[in-house]
């Protein structure tokens, strides 16, 4: 459903993304890993329309994403979370999830939307936090809210940017279950940046490795874990 060819992004002469190809099928769960500064978040920003590509083609369900604004891309069915959560701080959790709900292409009754919002908050484990201002949440809860908001856009493709950082082992287990559940039961494709290797290696079908803006390799978790280039990229020369 998502096809990207020759994606490039330059920031003032520095290539943050250089000739990257990417392809995702419906319901797949793909991990995106790489050392810091490899261009993972840049790739997300490009797909989600936070900025435009320097060159290359992005297609989603046969429609070109080039030059489309972030909100347009969201309505086409691509949702994202931010590495550092960006909740609407001065709004309640319920209002936070209501924003994507009222901006979907088909808007229903307010009461039905509120119901749906509460259900999704419940689903990510924020069930009793409806009326709390988002700024009052702790980091873990903010990450959950981030996820809930993304789900409320009714996505076909979900871009997750380090959702496990700062969670303890138990919480990681719950979060991974939730993500796997999304992809298997709801058929949502997931592209997932993660530094918690154990979690992503166990959950993802395939892994894409980026290094210095280029795609180093793509393969199953086993292939990636044993590839000398990947080990080299992580440990350095």
């Amino acid at each position: 459903m998502l096809k990207g060819n020759g994606l490039c992004k330059n920031f003032g002469g520095v290539a943050a993304l250089n000739d990257v190809d990417i392809s995702l099928e419906k319901g797949s769960l793909i991990g995106l890993i790489g050392p810091n500064g490899a261009g993972k978040t840049t790739l997300f920003n490009a797909i989600a329309g936070a900025f435009s590509l320097s060159s290359g083609n992005l297609e989603f369900n046969g429609k070109s994403l080039n030059g489309k604004s972030a909100n347009h891309i969201c309505r086409l069915g691509i949702a994202r979370t931010f590495q550092v959560p960006r909740p609407f701080a001065e709004m309640t959790c319920l209002e936070n999830v209501l924003v994507p709900l009222v901006n979907r292409s088909r808007v229903g009754e307010r009461t039905a939307l509120l119901q749906e919002g509460r259900e999704i908050l419940d689903f990510v484990g924020l069930g009793n936090r409806d009326d709390i201002l988002a700024k009052e949440l702790n980091l873990v809860e903010k990450k959950r809210l981030e996820m809930a908001r993304a789900l409320c856009t009714n996505p076909q493709l979900l871009l997750l940017d380090e959702v496990l950082g700062g969670l303890n082992t138990q919480e990681i287990g719950a979060a991974v279950d939730l993500i796997v559940n999304l992809s298997e039961k709801r058929g949502i494709a997931v592209l997932w940046i993660e530094h918690v290797m154990g979690a992503i290696m166990g959950a993802a079908e395939r892994i894409i490795v980026l290094d210095q803006g280029e795609k180093l390799m793509e393969g199953t978790p086993e292939e990636v874990a044993h590839d000398p280039r990947v080990i080299h990229a992580y440990l350095g020369a």
Partner: peptide, 24 residues
């Protein structure tokens, strides 16, 4: 819904855009 979008844009324009709000 317009007011909700107003406040979303005021709180965080980029996040709002990523959730489908037509910021412009």
């Amino acid at each position: 819904n317009i007011g909700l979008n107003f406040r979303a844009v005021q709180n965080d324009e980029k996040a709002a855009a990523s959730l489908g709000v037509d910021v412009i």
